[in-house]
């Protein structure tokens, strides 16, 4: 609750700071700002952690410097400027150089990348320590974190992997299925934590589901058997003229499968963040123009509703992790299926 209040006050602060005192409060700008990536890691109030900027351009090569050099978009550094969290190239008169801007590639450690690295390290620490306790507690009942994770691992193994892929092939997909499940779940939760080191919309940023789906796609292709391709190009037991319709659909299906994974995860998580932020914005919309009573009056029902949505998002967080893992397992099951005719 306190954390939510803190983060909401921070949002309001950032909204007003950038827009100036007399500019009306713009919820859509605030929401987009919080959902999109940023070049600094906001901690609390006006305190933000500057992040390294890494830019590659064919003209200047690789450049690395701190994002604090931009002074929140107010200063030009090395011919670069930060404009709405995008790095643009400017000429000596501070005018946008579109051709040069199109050429640079931004490899910066952004808010999302920093959170990503943090989460990955967290995952590695958690699961290597769980693995250690398996070695330590060999032949004994699980204890501590191990007993929390074990039912989930067993669920993924027995009810997702074995059920969808089959006893024969499931083992080689287990590392991937476990990794995506815990990856998505942990980052969904990190995204729901409103203060440092959470708050970044990692799984709701389209790039993350894209990579997860691409890895899934490569797994499907790499492990697909003969039967899988036969089912795509020449579905057995179907008249030839139907194949002319079916085969293109099936070929599209190869690509639709990962696409569905991307859109589902991205849309669910981003929508959750937007809903939460919209409710917070209500407070500031009602309290805008010095109407403190309106702001505080709205805050009470909004808080109640936000807590409800937050609980819902916790559920959505694990549900989307489950759905992604389950669908991936079903696709793997299709890929390794053997001829039954």
């Amino acid at each position: 609750m306190i954390a939510l209040l803190m983060s909401s006050s921070a949002m309001a602060g950032s909204g007003h700071d950038t827009d100036g005192a007399n500019v009306p409060f713009s919820p859509s700008e605030l929401i987009m700002h919080h959902i999109m990536d940023a070049h600094s890691l906001h901690i609390v109030g006006d305190i933000a952690l500057p992040l390294p900027i890494i830019i590659y351009s064919s003209a200047k090569g690789l450049e690395v410097f701190s994002s604090s050099n931009f002074h929140h978009g107010e200063a030009t550094y090395n011919g670069y400027r930060l404009e709405h969290e995008h790095i643009i190239v400017v000429d000596s008169e501070d005018n946008l150089d579109e051709a040069a801007t199109a050429e640079i590639i931004d490899f910066s450690i952004t808010k999302n990348v920093a959170t990503l690295l943090f989460g990955v390290i967290l995952l590695i620490i958690i699961f290597t320590s769980v693995a250690k306790s398996y070695v330590r507690n060999e032949g004994k009942a699980p204890s501590g974190l191990q007993s929390f994770v074990e039912p989930i691992i067993l669920f993924i193994r027995d009810d997702i992997a074995k059920a969808s892929i089959g006893e024969k092939h499931y083992a080689k997909f287990m590392p991937f299925l476990l990794s995506i499940f815990f990856f998505i779940w942990v980052f969904n939760i990190i995204g729901l934590i409103p203060f440092f080191p959470g708050g970044a919309n990692v799984t709701g940023n389209i790039a993350v589901p894209i990579v997860l789906a691409l890895v899934t796609f490569f797994y499907i292709i790499r492990n697909s058997g003969k039967a899988y391709w036969i089912h795509i190009f020449a579905m057995p037991g179907v008249p030839t003229w139907v194949l002319f319709i079916l085969t293109p659909i099936e070929i599209l299906g190869i690509f639709i499968k990962p696409l569905v994974l991307i859109i589902r995860l991205f849309a669910n998580i981003t929508a959750g963040h937007i809903v939460l932020l919209v409710f917070f914005c209500l407070i500031f919309l009602f309290g805008d123009g010095g109407n403190a009573g309106g702001g505080f009056g709205t805050a009470v029902p909004v808080m109640a509703f936000t807590i409800f949505i937050n609980c819902l998002e916790l559920l959505v967080g694990i549900l989307q992790a489950y759905v992604f893992t389950f669908l991936a397992a079903i696709y793997f099951g299709m890929a390794v299926a053997e001829e039954h005719h």
Binding site: V120, L123, I124, T128, V130, P175, V215
Partner: peptide, 22 residues
Amino acid sequence: GLLFWMTISFLTLMFILKRFAW
């Protein structure tokens, strides 16, 4: 940038977890 870092970190995560956890 995010695609790049995500690919690297996810593959690294999967490799490390596969080797030392799963």
